[in-house]
C-alpha cells in the first residue's frame, strides 16, 4: 500500500486526490503523482479534456490511433470502470494497480476473467475463446488448421470447464489459473514496482515527503 507521511500532497482539480488513490493501491503518493504526469500527457494527445478516450488509449499503447483490435478494445472497456466511454484519472490508477507486482492474485484473476468474458455473461464461453484465439492467430500471422483450433479448444475446456456445461465460470477460472500460473503472467508489469526511477521521463519533484516501509 502506498505509505505516506506528509502534509502537502498535490491536488488535481476534477480528479481524485493522490493521497486517497495511494491509500487504495500499491502505489505511493509520489508514484500516483508521477502517474498523473503520464495521464496528463496521454489525455491531451487528441482532445485536451483531461480524460482518456479510446483513440488516445490506443495511441499511447501502440503509437497508432487506428489500430483496432479485439483485445485492445476489451482492455479499454475494463479501464473504463465507470462505463462513460472515457477513462478518468482514478480509473487509470486503479486499473494499472491490478498490474502492480504487489496486487493480489485475486485481483489479477478477476481482471483476466472479465477480460476473457467479453460479452459480460459471467462466463467465459467457447465461442469467445475461439474468437480471441483467431484474433491472436491473425495478429501473429500464425496459421492453424480449423481442426487444430477445435482440438485446442476441446483440450482447454476439458481442463478448465470442470462441470462440463460448455462454459467456464469464475470458480472454474480461479482453479484453472492456480493450476496454470503462467496465465497471469500478462497481469504483472514488474517496473510498476518502482516507476519513479524506471521512467524518469514523466517524474517531477513531488511535494510529498514519503518514507517507504
Amino acid at each position: 500500500m502506498g505509505c505516506l507521511h506528509s502534509t502537502a500532497a498535490r491536488e488535481y482539480p476534477g480528479h481524485e486526490n493522490p493521497v486517497k488513490l495511494a491509500s487504495e493501491t500499491a502505489f505511493s503518493v509520489s508514484e500516483v503523482e508521477a502517474l498523473y504526469e503520464l495521464f496528463k500527457s496521454i489525455s491531451c494527445s487528441v482532445v485536451d479534456d483531461g480524460l482518456i478516450n479510446k483513440e488516445e488509449f490506443q495511441l499511447a499503447l501502440f503509437k497508432n490511433r487506428k489500430k483496432e483490435n479485439l483485445f485492445a478494445n476489451r482492455i479499454f472497456d475494463l479501464f473504463d470502470v465507470k462505463r462513460k466511454g472515457v477513462i478518468d484519472f482514478g480509473d487509470f490508477v486503479r486499473s494499472l494497480n491490478v498490474f502492480h507486482p504487489n496486487a493480489s492474485l485475486e485481483e489479477k484473476t478477476d481482471f483476466t476473467f472479465r477480460l476473457y468474458d467479453m460479452d459480460c455473461t459471467g462466463y467465459i464461453e467457447r465461442q469467445e475463446v475461439k474468437q480471441m484465439l483467431i484474433a491472436l492467430l491473425c495478429e501473429s500471422e500464425m496459421k492453424l488448421a480449423d481442426d487444430t483450433i477445435e482440438v485446442i479448444l476441446d483440450q482447454t475446456f476439458e481442463d478448465a470447464d470442470v462441470d462440463g456445461d460448455g462454459k467456464i465460470g469464475k470458480t472454474e477460472w480461479s482453479d484453472f489459473v492456480i493450476k496454470n500460473p503462467s496465465l497471469l503472467k500478462i497481469m504483472t508489469l514488474p517496473y510498476l514496482r518502482d516507476i519513479t526511477t524506471t521512467f524518469p521521463s514523466f517524474v517531477f519533484n513531488s511535494e510529498v515527503d514519503e518514507i517507504a516501509t
Binding site: I75, L115, I152, Q155, K179, N180, S182, I186
Partner: peptide, 29 residues
C-alpha cells in the same frame, strides 16, 4: 507454487501472447 498443467498448450496461453495485452507502451511516452 505449481507449474502449469502438463497438457498440450491451452488456448489461454496462446491468447496471452497477444501484443495487444502488453501495456508497456503506456510507459514509453
Amino acid at each position: 507454487k505449481g507449474s502449469d498443467s502438463p497438457t498440450i498448450i491451452n488456448a489461454f496461453q496462446l491468447i496471452g501472447m497477444s501484443s495487444f495485452l502488453d501495456l508497456s507502451g503506456f510507459f514509453e511516452q
